[in-house]
Structures are given as C-alpha cells and as structure tokens.
Amino acid sequence: MERRPRSFYVLAAFFGLFVLFLYGPTITIGILSFQGEGGGLTFPMRGVSLHWFRDLFQEQAVGDIWGAFRRSFALGLMVMITTVVVSVMAGLAFRKRFAGSGLLFYLAIASLVIPSILISLGVGLIFNQLGLKIHWATSGFGSQLTWTLPFGLLIMFAVFNRFDKSYEEAARDQGATAWQTIRYVVLPIIAPSLLGVALFGFTLSYDEFARTLLTAGSYNTLPLEIFGMTTNVTTPVIYALGTLTTVFSFLIIGAFLFTVWFMAKRRARHGSDAGKGV
C-alpha cells in the first residue's frame, strides 16, 4: 500500500475536530449532570453526586416528565410502524411510474422542506375550526408523519434503485404469485433497509419539536416538556434529563445497528448454498 499523503493527516485532524465539535457539548452536559448538590450550570464541579438524577425521579422540581416520556415513546412507536408500512407501500408504488407519481413525489419533497411551523400552525387551525380536539395521538401524530414519511420514502427510493430485479423475475418464473414474490423475495431482501426506515421513524418522532408544538394539545411530549423546562429550570437537573434522553437515544440507535449487523452476519452464514450441491 502506498504511503499516505500529507493531506491525509491534515484532513484527519480536521475530521477529529469535527467529531469533537459534534459530541463535545453532549459529553460536557453528561459530565455536568453529575454535579454536586451545590453546583451550578457550568464548571467547576462541586463534588460528584447523583443528586440531580434523584431529583428527576422525585417529580417535584420538574413537571410531568415521566408522563411526557411515556407519551413520546408511544407516539414514537406509532409513527415508526406507520412510517415503515406507508413508505414500503409507496416505494412499491413508485416503481410502477403510475400516473401522478411525479406530483406525489414533489409533494413528499415539499413536506420535507416546508418550514415546520407551517404544519404546526395549519394543523392546529384546521383542528380548531373543525372543532376537533387537539391531541398528540391525532393531530400530533399526523404532523409528525409529514416529517418522517419523506425520509422513509427517500430511503425506499435508494433501496429500490439498487434492487436487483432478476430475483423477482426468478421468483415469478418459478410460479410465485405477486404477493408471494413480495412476501418471500422482496421484503426479506430489503429488510435491513426497513430497519433503517424504522430507526428514522422512531427517533425523528421521539425528538420532534416544531411540528408537535401546536398540535400536541394539553399533554406535552418529552421535547416540549424539556423546552418548557429551559425557561424556568436553572439547575443541572435539566442536564440530568438531557443526559438520560440522549443515553436512551443512543441505546435505541445501538439496538438498531446491532440488529442490522446481526442480520447481515446471519445472512452471510446462511445466504448462499453455492458449492453445496454438486
């Protein structure tokens, strides 16, 4: 292998700084959430304690964060499942180039780039005028879908653009029905990407703020609750909460990545029977 050019080391250093820039602040509040009882929002640390985490569990210093967490979690799951199902269906539809597909595609892109506050405001207005109750599981759910579905759709485009059609053709040649082809050939092949769609669906919903702001109703989701805290909580308890949610996000991401890795490995072991016949 040839020697690395000098530019490599310069760029590697730049990359290192970028990663530090990305993670540094998060790590800092991670450390500061263990601040001692008398400590404030910045360094120096006045001792090390779990005081602020304990505070979180006592539900006095802060609002209803556990209720908010439960709601965000439930909403995340709802959005995740819907995003996967709807994206796959739409992904299959777009392979057919049906009449109006161009328009629908631009609508999905519009959904991605439209300022979030417009969705929030518009959905809020419609529900008000129709006399419907604004609730995180109805108006909030729909508003979040306008953010997660385009991502799901884009991933499906990327997947199907790289999809080897000869697998499908082979299945049909052997007499599989359309449904069997999808169920036993297409879905298993694209399964790892579906995990990606699911990850997007859950995490984007779990952290969504702007589109949920006016559409969550009287019960806050976790990001709304946290934002509310920033205006009236001036102790490291907010860091403790931030650290916990970030750790939770990392666990979710880790679980997804592990599953993808595990599936890929299993597939590599069982996938091909080349050389086993004759």
Binding site: V85, V86, S87, M89, A90, L92, A93, F94, K96, R97, F98, A99, G100, S101, L104, L107, A108, A110, S111, I114, L118, I119, L121, G122, V123, L125, I126, Q129, G142, S143, L145, T146, L149, L153
Partner: peptide, 28 residues
C-alpha cells in the same frame, strides 16, 4: 391495471400528505 395498483399502494402516503400538508397550507 398498473395505475390502479400504483394508486392503491400510494394511497396511504397521499392521504397523509393531503390531510396534514396540503390542507394545512390551504387553511393557512
């Protein structure tokens, strides 16, 4: 046939976008 199946498969996405993207903008 192709269009019909395509429409059916795209219907959920279309409905969500109509209800929560197009309608809100019209309302605004």
């Amino acid at each position: 046939g192709r269009n019909l199946l395509g429409w059916l498969q795209a219907a959920p996405l279309t409905l969500v976008l109509l209800a929560f993207l197009v309608a809100p903008i019209v309302m605004i």
